[in-house]
Design a protein around this nucleic acid. Structure first.
Length: 154
DNA sequence: ACCGGAAGGT
DNA sequence: ACCTTCCGGT
């Protein structure tokens, strides 16, 4: 398959989704089809051999990856989101918003290099999960769970 | 290249 | 909420 291929349009129900009373996670349109998030897409590319010339894990550093072809990653992302005017400048701004969310941070001094905070991602997915039990298991092809059903807590 | 504020879109 | 667009500053 092709991660750059756009997703099918989910049938929009009528009325639209009103704000949830609890302020908790409401479905964007329907429970199964939320919009793809950038960090999901990045992981999607990273887990496929066919894109190793475009983006790849940095050897030796846990969760660190390097964008080898920024223009191509931006093109694929724009294709997925149906934003043909996407470029690396805009994509990287979106990545920068992840800094405060503690999903990503920049590896300073290394060009086009960022690092996932897997511990934080796992914690968001499952707050009771003990990350110490799999500290060594994420070098290389770490495959984090696909359940970002985060408890807001706030 | 990289940063982060500001406004806008869905 | 999660980006997209734009842009002045480093």
């Amino acid at each position: 398959d092709a991660p750059g291929a756009p997703q099918r349009d989910p049938p929009t129900g009528k009325g639209g989704p009103p704000a949830f009373p609890g302020g908790a996670r409401r479905a964007e349109s329907s429970p199964g089809s939320r919009q793809i998030q950038l960090w999901h897409f990045i992981l999607e590319l990273l887990q496929k051999e066919e894109f190793r010339h475009v983006i790849a894990w940095q050897q030796g550093e846990d969760g660190e990856f390097v964008i080898k072809d920024p223009d191509e990653v931006a093109r694929l992302w724009g294709r997925r989101k149906r934003k043909p005017q996407m470029n690396y400048d805009k994509l990287s701004r979106a990545l920068r918003y992840y800094y405060n969310k503690r999903i990503l941070h920049k590896t300073k001094g290394k060009r086009f290099t960022y690092k996932f905070n897997f511990s934080h991602l796992l914690f968001l997915s499952c707050p009771l999960w003990d990350t110490r039990s799999l500290s060594g298991a994420m070098g290389g092809q770490g495959a984090p769970p696909n359940s970002p059903s985060g408890p807001p807590g706030a």
